[in-house]
Amino acid sequence: MTHARDVASAARNADAAENARAAESARAAANAAENARAGDADAEAVARALSSPLRLRILRLCAFDARTNKELAELLDVNPGTMLHHVRTLADAGLLAADPVRRGTRGAREVPYRATGLSWNAPVPAASVLILDTMREQLVGVDPEDVDVTWMGLRLNPVHLDELRERLGALFEEFTSRGPDADGEAYSLVSVLHPDLNPPAA
């Protein structure tokens, strides 16, 4: 009789352990799903924040130096109220981070913002069009003689195309990893590589 009770008790314990494992697995799956939804929402927020040439220019201005809403508005010739909306959008998406509060020349409370670098590898729909639109805005007021331009046609097989991409990427990474020069001036570099409607002659 005792043996039968022991067997029944062991079976109940095994069932309880199995139920506990199943419950834990369900909780883990629910947490994973929730995290995935949160990740998707974060990615969507970042993509929305990066969908504006003006906001890309704000990030560029805050890449090396922390700047206040007032400073950004003056540099980009934008109404301070409009600028505040864009700054908050970038901050809410984690693309700008606030530095410690400081006092302005008249003692006013100012919050400088610095780019977090999150935008560097963030996926953005139609990024090529967005970057080119941003570049056009940045070139307004720049003397054409101060702009270095190279435009060439290439005919490359897949191996050489990969080689070109890798070498360009390595060059950009090298200069980026050096960080800004203490005595340097600001420059913008845009690289565009695209299929060309130029097939071989028949």
Rank of each mutant, 00 (worst) to 15 (best):
T2G: 08
H3T: 05
R5M: 00
S9C: 04
S9R: 12
A10M: 08
A14L: 15
A16W: 02
A17F: 08
E18W: 09
E18R: 13
A20R: 15
A20M: 14
A22R: 15
A28K: 15
A28F: 13
A33Q: 08
E34L: 13
A38D: 04
V46F: 09
S51I: 04
S51D: 09
L54C: 03
L54Q: 03
L56D: 00
L56H: 00
L59E: 01
F64V: 07
T68G: 02
N69G: 10
N69K: 13
N69F: 11
E71Q: 07
L76C: 05
D77R: 06
V78L: 14
N79P: 02
P80G: 00
H85K: 10
H85A: 06
H86Q: 12
H86L: 02
T89G: 00
T89C: 05
L90Q: 00
L90D: 01
A91H: 03
D92P: 06
L95M: 10
L95I: 11
V101H: 04
R102E: 06
G104S: 09
T105L: 12
R106C: 08
R106D: 14
A108W: 12
V111W: 07
Y113K: 01
A115W: 01
N121W: 15
A122S: 07
P123C: 10
V124D: 00
P125G: 14
A127R: 02
S128G: 05
L130Q: 00
I131Y: 03
L132H: 05
D133M: 12
M135G: 01
R136H: 08
Q138E: 14
L139W: 00
V140K: 14
P144W: 04
V149F: 11
M152C: 15
M152P: 02
G153F: 10
R155Q: 07
L156F: 09
L156M: 10
N157M: 03
N157P: 02
P158S: 01
P158V: 00
P158W: 01
V159D: 04
H160R: 08
L161F: 05
L161C: 02
E163K: 10
L164N: 06
E166I: 12
L168K: 07
L168Q: 11
G169D: 08
A170K: 07
A170H: 07
L171G: 12
E173M: 03
F175Q: 10
P180I: 01
D181R: 15
G184L: 09
Y187K: 07
S188A: 10
S191V: 15
V192K: 10
D196F: 15
L197Y: 10
L197W: 11
P199I: 04
